[in-house]
Lab assay of single mutants.
Amino acid sequence: VDYIVEYDYDAQHDDELTIRKGDIIKNVKKLEEEGWLEGELNGKRGMFPDNFVKEIK
């Protein structure tokens, strides 16, 4: 499942992704941690907030 970024987010920890509006995040999975998703961007896998992105259908 792929998501498109709607709002910029700067990573706060090493396991998070810095994302920018218009980025496409690939292979996204829901995490047990409420409010977070995990996906791949530019060869890096990491977490990001689910309210900054929208699923591409």
Rank of each mutant, 00 (worst) to 15 (best):
A11F: 03
E34A: 12
E55G: 02
D10M: 13
E34M: 14
A11P: 11
G39K: 00
V1H: 10
Y3R: 03
I19A: 05
E55M: 04
F52I: 07
N51Y: 06
E32H: 09
R45D: 02
D10H: 12
H13S: 14
V5G: 14
K21M: 10
E40M: 08
N51D: 15
E6D: 03
R20D: 01
R20Y: 08
K26W: 10
K54W: 05
A11Q: 13
E40H: 09
K44R: 14
G22D: 07
E55S: 03
D8W: 04
E6P: 02
R20V: 09
D14F: 11
R45N: 07
I19E: 00
L31G: 11
L37D: 05
D50P: 09
D10E: 09
P49R: 14
K26G: 08
D15T: 10
N51P: 03
F48G: 00
I25P: 02
F48D: 00
G35S: 06
K29T: 12
A11G: 09
K29P: 01
G43Y: 05
R20A: 09
D10L: 13
D15P: 12
F52N: 05
H13Y: 13
K29Q: 11
K57W: 15
G43R: 05
P49K: 15
I24H: 05
D23M: 07
K44P: 01
K30D: 07
D8Q: 07
E16V: 06
W36Q: 05
G22T: 07
G39W: 00
V1M: 07
Y3V: 14
D10I: 13
N27H: 11
D8L: 03
E34G: 08
R20Q: 09
E38A: 10
M47T: 12
V28I: 04
D10A: 13
N51F: 03
G43V: 02
Y7D: 15
N42R: 11
G39N: 00
I4K: 06
D15N: 12
I24Q: 05
G39A: 02
G39P: 00
K57T: 15
Y3K: 02
L37V: 07
F48S: 01
K44V: 06
K21T: 09
W36N: 02
V1Y: 06
K30G: 10
Y7R: 15
V1N: 12
V5L: 01
K30A: 12
D15F: 12
A11D: 01
I56D: 07
K29W: 14
I4L: 10
I19V: 04
V53G: 11
V28Y: 02
I56W: 05
G46P: 00
Y3E: 01
F52D: 03
I25T: 01
F52W: 03
E33F: 13
K30T: 09
N27P: 01
A11Y: 02
P49Q: 14
D50I: 06
D10P: 11
Y7Q: 14
R45V: 14
F48Q: 00
M47Y: 07
D10W: 14
M47I: 11
E34N: 10
G43S: 09
E32V: 14
E16K: 04
L37P: 02
Y9N: 04
E55D: 04
E16D: 06
G35W: 03
Y9P: 01
E34D: 12
V5K: 00
D10S: 12
K57G: 15
D14I: 12
K26L: 07
E32Q: 14
K26S: 11
H13N: 10
E38G: 06
F48M: 09
L17W: 01
T18K: 03
V53S: 04
R45L: 09
E33V: 13
E38M: 09
V1F: 05
D2M: 15
K26R: 15
E40D: 14
F52S: 06
E33D: 13
I25L: 11
K54P: 02
L31R: 14
K30P: 14
K26Y: 14
T18L: 03
K29G: 12
V28L: 02
L37W: 04
E40A: 07
D15W: 11
N42H: 13
I4M: 09
I24W: 05
R20W: 04
D23V: 04
K57H: 15
E16S: 04
M47R: 11
Y9K: 05
E16F: 06
D10Q: 10
V5W: 02
E6Y: 06
I4N: 04
L41S: 08
D14E: 14
Q12K: 13
V5M: 01
G35M: 05
A11N: 05
Y7M: 14
Y9S: 03
R45Y: 11
I4H: 04
V1E: 04
I4V: 08
N51R: 13
E38S: 13
D50T: 09
K30S: 11
W36S: 03
Y7F: 04
K44F: 11
D15L: 12
V28R: 00
D23R: 02
D8V: 03
K54Y: 04
G22E: 05
D14W: 09
Q12P: 03
K54L: 10
K57N: 15
E16I: 02
V1A: 14
V28K: 01
L31M: 12
E38Y: 11
D2W: 15
D15Q: 11
N42V: 06
I4P: 01
W36L: 04
Q12Y: 07
K21R: 10
K57E: 15
D8T: 06
K30H: 10
A11S: 15
I56M: 06
K54G: 05
E55V: 11
D50Q: 10
N51A: 13
I24D: 01
V53Q: 02
T18N: 10
G22S: 05
A11M: 12
A11R: 08
I19T: 02
G46M: 01
V1L: 07
Y7H: 14
Q12H: 13
K30Y: 10
Q12D: 06
L17R: 01
E6F: 08
